[in-house]
Design a protein around this nucleic acid. Structure first.
Length: 613
RNA sequence: GUCCCUGUAGCUCAGUUGGAUAGAGCAGGAGCCUUCUAAGCUCCAGGUCGCAGGUUCGACUCCUGCCAGGGACGCCA
């Protein structure tokens, strides 16, 4: 497979050179080829001589000389250099750059397929029935979607699993409460459900807390009876909820129909939000907790029968050798816990979905929980795939979204912001900016229809929010500051969209056909052209690295660098007014490739790339 | 109390798994639109990488111990 990745080609060359110079096996050497940080040190460098010299107690500079002499670089390098204690610096020739760019100039943009023997399962979104989506879901949804896109781009089978909270007592409480109120289930909105959910939760809490307090105070049976009388409604509600849960579990048709209605109402709004976000998530990706309900009992039986779990104070728990914290898998009252469901889910995902990698895109605060679950899975061997290999289980943990006060983002009244409200505001701000621009008579958007401008504005606003979420290390908390995200200056989504739109407009103005541009010869000569070319060639490897390291921010960084390199090129190198037609066409082709890489990269991030803005 | 995460410029953050003089963006200073979109470009200024040891040719990166902030810890999910 002809690779257009200069690092791969140089690695191959240096591996041969090192093998020849040191008399070792080429397959076992690490050529340590990297892009140079400083142009003074060439385009790429090979750092292998330093480590090898230490092992062989040789002079690193001398060894570097021998490696370089034995490395076949003709056709690739125009200049080489040995610097410092033994760094080998390489400058690519213009011919090699042009050849590599041409190799990358294809629909797949140089991203070679990297298939895996098994599927990749991505747990994302994780909404709860009867609850509004909030900023926490933004991250689980957006990051999960990007991970799915990255693996899909590499030609891997991907399962997007939206593990919704659609089962258990909380849902039954909401359902029971709505039925008591004789609500018309055909007319319910998500807000209605949310209100009922919170009311039901609050009832349960006050009841529990009060009862616990009464018991803690050493209250006798009489006092407890009095308490019971005072809290009659709450207790009645709880009994009602439990009865409803039983009916639901036994498949009572009317109850199941109402329950399904709650799910439909919730998911209609969830899917409206994922559409707004440009996230690929639909009904076909929903596999909620209820799906696993028949698989929970067997989980307990398996752990108990294998002696991995035992009874403790009435509950069934798994103890681990290296920590005090046990994992509860069944309550004393016989009920199951979320660890039980997750154990069943991992088992299903590995054994039935053939998941060789199972990635949980979930809030970092659940790290202990997933450590326990994964260790439990490994203990019992449910990470074994059909071919006997072990699945990789990972918790891709993300940090909390904070407000400007560095506290978890809340409204004035202390409630979570709904995701919808946040996105609506971002879209509104994006539209304002686009309108402001379009008012200028020389703007390419001047005179566009209002509906088109609004669509561009939405793409810009959503792009700003998503880019801000994706461009940092996922594990860290970040401050949600719409003013900063939407400023559209610097390292933002709109900056990259802008670079893309500029190129689209440039190419449209050129009057050249796509065929004429595609037939041009790449001739990156000017420093800005060379730098742009090197940024382009770096991109395919970044996609693979981002997938393997579960680091979407690498895609963002590479795109920002590329957009930046293009902006400098644009400033320094006239395209349409280039001195001669060869240069003009070469620069147009370079621009075209840049445009497609930017669009492709934004697509991996699930961010739209408008042609005008 | 136990365990986990985080600490990099005034602010918000990157840092390619150990490589050369630690990078961006805001904010601050100086320039650049009669010529391809100024949502842009080019300079300048800004740092004991939380602290202290250790590992080695070489450490923001790996190890140990502290300090600070945050989080999780038996019958909620």
């Amino acid at each position: 497979m002809a690779s257009c990745d200069p690092v791969a080609l140089l690695e191959q060359a240096f591996r041969a050179g090192i093998a020849a110079a040191t008399g070792t096996d080429a397959a076992s050497v690490d050529p340590q080829v990297k892009a140079s940080a400083d142009p003074k040190h060439g385009d790429f460098q090979c750092n292998a001589a330093l480590a090898l010299a230490k092992a062989a107690k040789a002079n690193p500079s001398e060894l570097a000389r021998r490696i370089l002499a034995a490395t076949p670089l003709s056709g690739l390098a125009e200049r080489t250099d040995i610097a410092g204690p033994g760094f080998i610096n390489v400058w690519l020739s213009q011919g090699a750059l042009g050849h590599l760019l041409a190799g990358m100039d294809a629909p797949e943009l140089g991203i070679d397929p990297a298939p895996l023997p098994h599927a990749v399962v991505i747990d994302l979104c994780g909404v709860n029935v009867a609850k509004q989506m909030h900023v926490g879901h933004l991250r689980a949804t957006v990051i999960g979607d990007v991970m799915a896109r990255l693996h899909e781009r590499l030609g891997r089978k991907v399962w997007r699993e939206n593990h919704l909270g659609d089962w258990g007592l909380p849902i039954a409480m909401t359902l029971a409460s709505l039925r008591r109120q004789k609500r018309d289930f055909a007319r319910l909105t998500l807000d209605d459900l949310n209100t009922a959910y919170r009311a039901a939760q609050a009832e349960g809490k006050s009841d529990e807390a009060g009862q616990a307090a009464a018991i803690a105070c050493g209250a006798g049976p009489h006092r407890l009876a009095e308490f019971d009388a005072q809290n009659g409604p709450a207790l009645a509600a709880e009994r009602d909820a439990k009865a409803t849960l039983l009916k639901l579990q036994s498949g009572d048709p009317a109850t199941v129909a109402d329950w399904q209605r709650l799910i439909d109402v919730t998911m209609a709004e969830v899917f409206a939000t994922t559409r707004t976000l440009g996230v690929k998530l639909g009904p076909e990706h929903s596999r909620g907790e209820s799906f696993y309900r028949e698989r929970l009992g067997p989980v307990i039986e398996a752990f108990v029968s294998k002696g991995l779990a035992r009874e403790d104070q009435g509950a069934i728990v798994v103890h681990y050798a290296d920590r005090d914290r046990p994992m509860l898998i069944r309550k004393a009252d016989g009920g199951f816990l979320y660890a039980t469901t997750d154990l069943a889910a991992v088992r299903f995902r590995v054994q039935e979905l053939d998941g060789g990698r199972v990635i949980y895109v979930v809030d970092a605060r659940q790290r202990d929980h997933f450590k326990d679950v994964f260790d439990g899975v490994r203990l019992i061997g449910w990470d074994a795939l059909r071919d006997g290999t072990r699945a990789e289980l990972s918790h891709m943990q993300f940090g909390t979204v904070l407000g400007k006060d560095k506290r978890p983002l809340r409204t004035r009244s202390g409630e979570n912001f709904t995701l919808k409200a946040l996105l609506d505001e971002a879209i509104e701000r994006g539209i304002q900016q686009v309108f402001r621009r379009a008012a200028e008579t020389d703007a390419p958007t001047h005179g566009l229809r209002e509906t088109d401008l609004r669509a561009i504005g939405a793409a810009v606003g959503i792009g700003a929010v998503k880019y801000a979420d994706l461009s940092g290390d996922p594990v860290k908390d970040y401050v949600f500051d719409l003013d900063r995200m939407i400023a559209f200056e610097g390292d933002t989504g709109p900056y990259i969209q802008y670079a893309h739109a500029r190129i689209a407009s440039l190419i449209a103005r050129s009057g050249e056909s796509a065929a004429a541009i595609a037939a041009a010869t790449y001739a990156p000569i000017e420093p800005a052209e060379r730098h742009l070319a090197l940024c382009l060639l770096r991109f395919p490897a970044v996609v693979l690295a981002a997938a393997e390291h579960q680091a979407p921010q690498r895609v963002c960084a590479a795109l920002h660098e590329l957009a930046n390199a293009y902006a400098s090129f644009y400033q320094a190198c006239p395209v349409l007014k280039a001195a001669d037609s060869g240069t003009r066409l070469s620069r147009l082709r370079l621009s075209s490739l840049t445009q497609r890489v930017l669009a492709g990269g934004l697509d991996l991030l699930g961010i739209a790339a408008p042609d005008r803005m």
